[in-house]
Structures are given as structure tokens and as C-alpha cells.
Simulated scan of single mutants.
Amino acid sequence: MDRVALFFWLGLLFVAVNVMWALAQAVVASAFGARPLAVQVGYGPKLLAWRMGGIGWSLHPIVLGSSASFAPGEEEAAQAPTLKSRLNKLPPPLHALSLAIPWYVQIGVAMACLGPAEGFHQFTEGFPAVFNLAALPERVERFVGLLRDGELLRAWGIMSARMAALNLLPIPTLAGGYLMLLPWRDKSPTWVRPVAIALLAVFLPWAAYVAYLFVRAIL
């Protein structure tokens, strides 16, 4: 593959992983009675926007994540001024499942693409991969090598497994952080904001470094 094709397929894989996560989150939460108001795939300026199933969907160019908004509408806010999210109306077990099941979907995709044993291995290997900066360049080179060889299904499985592991980190903006803060879902403690800022201060340079490694490996 040439460089343009590599960037195209890499971007498409990021879109596929994040759309799968967003769809799973919207479907599961809606099934439990907490339909999201909006689902955003990617970050940055809005490229496309549409409505489907009573939910506002939007696509953005930086496809490094997705998010669902459960903030209450005006009518809900007037009836329950303290309600910050439609998810808070659910019993805590259903709230936890609405966060956890999309994570299981990502692992399921990895297992379907790679086989159960290899998919689970790639998921568990994702945790040390986040912190082992010395091994990241080689891992990224191997992943880009899969794209060059046209092994897109295997690449999708590996990316799904690694994103599932990453999403479980206890960072408040990720599923792991939301699960960690579930006991304080009605009123976040004062320590949440400074901890979130500190964790993001570490996570964002890491994400920028990984993006740089991908660009360097392709170019």
C-alpha cells in the first residue's frame, strides 16, 4: 500500500472501532431506558450531523474517541434539577452495565477477528502496552506492517482489543473512570476535578506520542 492508502485505512479502522463503541453504548443505554440525546464520533469541527432513532449523531475529523451525551433536556431538568445525566435515573447495576457492555462488545469484536484466545491475549497485553513507552515504536511498526500487508481484519481485532484495554483506565473521561466514580454519581467529590486534570495531563502527551509514531511509521 502507498502512504495515502495507509492513512486512509488507519483512519477507517479508528472510525470503525469508535462507531462500534458509540452504537453499543447508545443501544445498551436505550434498552435500559436511558436513551442518549446525542452521540459524537471523533473530535474537532463537525463534518456530518444527522438524527437516527431519536438521537443526534455527529462525525468529527479527529477519530480518536467517541462519546454519548445523556445530559437531561429542559423538561427533565425542570422536574429534577439535581439530575446531571439520564443514566442517573437508572438503578446503579443497570448504570454499571450500560458502561460495561460496550466494553465487552469491543472485546467480542477482537475475539471474532483474531479468535478467542488471541483476542483476549491482545486485550490483556494492552494494559502494559500503555505504560511501556520503550516498546511502543516497535508495536506501532508491527501494526502498520499489518496494514501494508492488507491484513485489515487482524488489524481491526488488535485495535479493538487495545482500545478496550485503554478505555478501562481509571481516567474520568473514559469508561473505567465512570465506573470508578459510580458510587458518587449523584454528586462528584471535590477531588475528582484535580485528579481528572492530572490524569489528562499525562494521557494527552501519551496520545500525541502514539500519533507521532503512527505518522513516522507510515512516512
Rank of each mutant, 00 (worst) to 15 (best):
A201V: 11
A100C: 07
A100F: 14
A161K: 01
V41K: 07
R142Q: 11
W103G: 00
F120G: 05
A198R: 09
I158H: 00
A16V: 09
Y43R: 14
K89V: 03
Q122G: 01
N18E: 09
V39Y: 09
W184S: 12
W191V: 13
L152D: 00
P189S: 11
K84H: 12
L48M: 10
G108Y: 00
V4K: 11
V15K: 01
R86H: 03
I171E: 10
P128Y: 06
G119R: 01
E151R: 15
P92W: 09
Y43C: 01
A71P: 01
P194M: 12
P128D: 07
I55K: 07
W103T: 03
L48N: 00
L213Y: 11
L12R: 07
L147I: 06
Y104D: 00
R216P: 00
I107T: 03
G33V: 09
A110G: 07
R142L: 05
V192E: 14
L133C: 06
A112P: 01
E151D: 13
L133N: 07
L153Y: 00
L64E: 02
S188N: 11
T82V: 11
H95Y: 15
A196D: 12
G44F: 06
L94A: 14
L153C: 02
K46M: 15
G53S: 07
L136W: 04
H60N: 14
E74K: 14
E138M: 08
Q79T: 08
A211T: 13
L99P: 03
M163P: 01
S66V: 07
P102T: 03
L133D: 03
E141V: 08
P61F: 08
L136Q: 15
L133H: 12
L87C: 06
E118H: 02
K84S: 13
W21A: 09
T124L: 11
F120A: 14
D2K: 06
P116V: 05
V215C: 12
G126K: 05
N18S: 08
A29R: 02
W21V: 01
M159I: 07
G44I: 05
A211D: 10
E151S: 11
P205S: 08
I158D: 01
L169E: 04
C113G: 00
W184E: 10
F7A: 13
P137W: 09
F203T: 09
M20N: 05
N88W: 08
H60S: 09
L166S: 06
L13F: 03
A175W: 02
A29L: 06
F143I: 05
D149C: 04
L83R: 14
V109E: 02
I158L: 11
W9M: 08
G115V: 04
P183R: 07
G150E: 06
A134D: 10
W9Y: 14
A129D: 13
M20F: 08
A155T: 02
V28K: 03
W156L: 15
V15E: 04
P172I: 13
